[in-house]
Design a protein around this nucleic acid. Structure first.
Lengths: 240, 240
DNA sequence: CTCTTTATAGTCGTAGTGACTATTAGTCGA
DNA sequence: TCGACTAATAGTCACTACGACTATAAAGAG
């Protein structure tokens, strides 16, 4: 309780934010990693992040770090989601660090120019994001799970898409994040039946790789929730 | 990023946990509140909580505080869920406090004997949990929303029930948390059709208030997820 | 052309569910 | 002891959503 100020010696903690910045490149989920130039975990890869400044909230700090690490001028429209806070005593060998973790979703993936203090920053395929420093493997896995779960009942998937996209591209986003194939006509029916999920760009059509019939072009709609949800073909429901 | 140790003057923060301890009493959602005996917000009600000790995680601290505030001997089996972390610079007028918020669900509600430093602790109906200290109104609302959402796709509702309960009681839990009435036969069908949600206690039956046909008694099952989900009759799906 | 590729349209059967009605098993009050 | 009342449980019916399909349209490649 908060009346304990004078009673407890409230130990000071260092507070950081850690970011799982996700994007899709060439049909595969990628995550932004930085190479550590100092001990501990020197030479290991880690999630970008940094200390909370005295005058900012965790969300503000996360957005600032996101801008620094990606080099993007405008990160105001990007989806940033607080995951949870990691506070196990031993998670940083040097000192007591409590870290607020965020997931960020980017549509396109400009190569990061290590603007921050990172020795090197790079997009790494999610599957090859080997053992990371600290508990960042856990944070990254939690981010993936959260994003996958939110795809079921929100319109979050469009955050991975450029401003204009085809339904095939949107389906690829789902398939890549969930790691499962989806039936194309059924996916299409579901998306179009959900009001506000996507809206057609009149008259626009685009070829999806040079071949086949050009696909209609859509924009993200105004809806944020998905009712009823678009459930992933999960472990459940199978003949156990 | 975490290599910034020597560069940034990483300001120390006080880290606390705040608990939204929820229970059902007489068919209404109640929350455990403590009366503040010190400035600021002296005399106001607040969520229980306290500072993180140097050697414990936020989860450990939350469980410790929960035991202290409720006076319960065994809080190991209780559902404790990290909500999110609140870190706005001005949320505590005295100092920079970052708070990790949790929601806790209790089946029965023993009157708390203010074991901690709380001047007074009391169960307060959710609706009458007037303006709270700090940003605790927001935390409490977030807890309610999170629990309501989790009811849709998990078996969490049994956390509000005693070890043995009737389907009518379980339905009341849903109705109270969601604030909507549910059709009894349909609710029953749905719960029984979900394997592992509840399991029958053989031969047991109980009257639900002295009247009517005695109801069969159930225990919480082993399942944790609900597939397909039990969606609340929401704002969506209505003729807009 | 025709073959391949991709988008789009539509069909069919079934699980899930909302809105009901009917029946059963108790208590309470006259 | 006999209804009236109450609550639990059983069952019906129609409609929606969805998985698994087949069919057609529109492009490029050869």
């Amino acid at each position: 309780m908060l009346q304990g100020y004078d009673k407890y010696a409230h130990e000071p903690f260092a507070v950081t934010v850690d970011l799982a910045v996700l994007t899709l490149r060439e049909g595969a989920l990628h995550v932004l990693l930085v190479e550590r130039g100092q001990e501990p975990y020197r030479g290991h890869w880690a999630l970008p992040g940094g200390f909370l400044h005295p005058d900012e909230s965790a969300e503000t700090a996360a957005r600032r770090e996101l801008a620094e690490e990606t080099g993007l001028a405008d990160v105001s429209g990007l989806h940033l989601e607080q995951l949870r806070t990691y506070s196990e005593p031993g998670r940083d060998p040097r000192m007591r660090v409590v870290s607020v973790a965020f997931a960020a979703l980017l549509p396109d993936a400009p190569e990061p120019h290590g603007g921050g203090d990172a020795a090197e920053a790079r997009w790494v395929p999610y599957d090859k994001a080997g053992p990371l420093a600290f508990d960042h493997d856990r944070i990254l896995a939690d981010a993936h799970e959260r994003v996958g779960a939110k795809f079921e009942y929100t319109c979050l998937a469009t955050a991975f898409c450029p401003p204009e996209f085809t339904l095939g591209e949107l389906q690829q986003v789902y398939e890549t994040v969930w790691g499962t194939a989806l039936d194309r006509p059924n996916f299409r029916r579901k998306v179009l039946a959900t009001p506000g999920f996507v809206e057609a760009v009149p008259g626009a059509a685009r070829l999806t790789g040079g071949r086949g019939k050009p696909a209609a072009v859509y924009r993200a709609g105004t809806a944020t929730a998905l009712h009823p949800p678009l459930l992933r073909p999960s472990r459940e429901g199978r003949p156990a």
